[in-house]
Simulated assay, not measured.
Amino acid sequence: MPVARYRRIADDIRARIAHGDWAIGQALPSRRELAAAYGVNEQTMRLAYQLLRRQGVLEGEERKQVSVAHPAAVRTLTDVDANWPFSSETTDTRPRAATEELAERLGVPARAQLQHETVECLDPGGRSAMLVSTWWRGRRRAHSSFAAELETIELTEGQAHALGLLVDSLAYRVVRTRFDAHGAPTETADLILPMDRWRIRLGC
C-alpha cells in the first residue's frame, strides 16, 4: 500500500531535523515555502505539519509558525493536591454561573455565582505543562481533605490553544474537590494534563 505523500514529507522533515538542518527551538519555513520546495499544495504540507505536531516533533499553533519541539518532559503526577513547584500564569479570573455539574460538585444551587480562576502551569523551560481551572463560592477557605476522579478527554479549542496542541488531542482530566473539616466542599477544580507529557501514578 503506497504511503500518503504528506507522510513521506513528514518522514523527510523528521530526517532533516535529525541531520541538523533545523535545531531544537528553530522555526521552520512557512507552509507555503515548504510546499513550493516539495512541489505540493499547502494542504499536503498542512497535513505533514499536523502529523509532526501530533508526534511531538514540531510545536506551535495551527496556522502559525512552527518550530522544532523541545523533548517533552514526561512527569508523573502522584499528588493531585500538591502545589505546582514551578512558575505559573493566571489566565482567567472571570466569575462564572455554576453549571449543573459544578453545582453538584460544590453543593450549591445551579446558576449560583462562583469565583473562578484558570492557571497555566509552566515547566522549567517555560512551556505549558498543565491547566488548572478552579471554582469556589464566596471567599476561598482552607481545606482538610480532598477527593479526585480521573478520566480522559479531548481538548477543547481553548485548552489546545493554551497547551500548544491540536484540538481533540487526548488529555487526562483530574476532577479534584477539596473539603473542610466537616466534609463540606470548599472548592473544585479540573486539572488538564496532556497525555504525551504526563503519567498518572495512584498511591495506596
Rank of each mutant, 00 (worst) to 15 (best):
M1K: 03
M1R: 03
M1G: 08
R5M: 05
R5Y: 02
R7L: 15
A10I: 15
A10R: 13
A10Y: 12
D11N: 12
D12F: 00
D12W: 00
D12I: 09
R14E: 08
A15V: 00
R16Y: 09
A18H: 10
H19Q: 15
A23T: 08
A23E: 11
Q26V: 11
Q26Y: 00
Q26P: 08
Q26W: 00
Q26G: 12
Q26L: 03
A27T: 10
R32W: 02
E33D: 14
E33S: 13
E33M: 04
L34C: 06
L34D: 05
L34E: 04
A36Q: 08
E42Q: 13
T44L: 07
M45N: 10
M45D: 08
L47P: 04
Y49A: 05
Q50D: 12
L51S: 13
L52H: 06
R53M: 13
R54W: 10
E59T: 11
E61K: 09
E62P: 00
E62I: 05
K64S: 11
V66A: 09
V66Q: 11
P71C: 09
V74K: 09
R75V: 07
T76W: 01
V80W: 00
N83H: 07
N83T: 14
W84F: 03
F86N: 05
S87K: 12
S88Q: 05
E89L: 11
T90K: 04
D92M: 02
D92G: 06
T93G: 11
T93M: 08
R94I: 12
P95R: 14
E101G: 00
E101F: 02
L102Y: 00
L102K: 04
L106R: 04
L106Y: 03
P109Q: 12
A110V: 15
R111S: 04
R111P: 01
Q113R: 13
Q113E: 15
Q113W: 00
Q113D: 14
Q115R: 14
H116G: 03
H116Y: 09
T118N: 00
E120Q: 12
E120W: 00
L122V: 02
L122F: 04
L122T: 01
D123T: 05
D123H: 02
R127I: 02
R127H: 10
A129M: 07
S133K: 08
G138N: 10
R139M: 06
R140E: 12
H143R: 03
S145W: 15
F146H: 15
A147T: 15
A147E: 15
E151C: 13
L155R: 01
T156Q: 10
G158H: 10
A162M: 10
L166P: 03
L166I: 11
V167G: 03
D168T: 09
A171V: 08
Y172G: 08
R173T: 11
V174Y: 01
V175R: 13
T177Q: 09
T177E: 07
R178A: 14
H182E: 15
H182R: 15
A184F: 05
T186V: 15
E187P: 01
T188C: 14
T188N: 05
L191D: 09
L191N: 06
I192N: 01
I192H: 05
M195N: 02
R197V: 03
R197G: 10
W198D: 01
R201N: 06
R201S: 12
R201C: 04
R201G: 06
R201E: 13
R201M: 07
G203D: 08
G203T: 14
